[in-house]
Amino acid sequence: MMATANAERRTDYKDLTRGLRVDIIRMLEKAGSGHPGGSLSIIDILAVLYDKHFQHRPQEPNWPDRDRMVLSKGHACPALYALMAHHGYFPKPQLDTLRKLGSPLQGHPDRMRLPGIEVSTGSLGQGLSIAQGMAMSAKMDAKGYHTWCVLGDGEMQEGQIWEALMSAPKFGLGNLTAILDFNNSQIDGSMEEVMNLNPIADKIRAFHWNVIEFDGHDFEQIEAAILKAKSSKIPSFLIAKTVKGKGVSFMENQIGWHGKAPNKEEADKACEEIRHG
């Protein structure tokens, strides 16, 4: 019985994330610039999180009891925009305005321009501190909402992240979860070449976080990790092993696709692959 339910759910997510990936590729194609690699690596996790676990009301983006999402790796905003359109925060055709003058869909998320964006991000390394402040407020006010912070592995090289890693356990923030999009790739090369963070899990555990490692493209594992994080008494750190550019063969693990938009031909090819993937 359980197996059947899970099988159905897996099918749904597959279908859902195919559509979201196509949206990401098409909006980047139309924008003519942007970051496909890190958007495609995080989309499966975000899709599962928003589907059943993330408490929100898209028609009431300032609902006080909503969960908070801090996309610290702000350059992956096409993934978040695709999801927000899917959930009805704004009409889907607006995705075509990404990065255009006057668009609420800025190149990096801007909370003043797009309702539903919790924090304006893009300067890497800052999100976890901001998310921490939100979780501290929830604790002070005895509110039940959870704060989620999506980090890139490259941005883990920023010192401010480690300051927040030190302080969140001190402040007893079981209501805070960091999700690391561990795709081992950044602009100047692989994370290991540029500035190796490994052994990442050991380091975070030593800072007294609830560390959960899983495959960031396996829907069951993603779901299990989210549930474990939500029930934790201490802050959780989800290490999602991901593939940069996931779902498009010519983008997967290709550093050149970190911050380059596909042209029409490339986008057509990518979408064709995604639909049959």
């Binding site: 998310a131 939100m134 407020s137 401010q160 300051e163 302080s167």
Partner: peptide, 28 residues
């Protein structure tokens, strides 16, 4: 004491956390 937070010698983390608190209605 419940509204006072010691961040240690980590000013950027303190300022970032203050921003998060402010976004949730506090005056940090």
């Amino acid at each position: 004491p419940d509204r006072y937070f010691e961040f240690g010698i980590a000013e950027q983390n303190m300022i970032g956390s203050a921003a998060g608190m402010a976004l949730c209605g506090k005056t940090p």
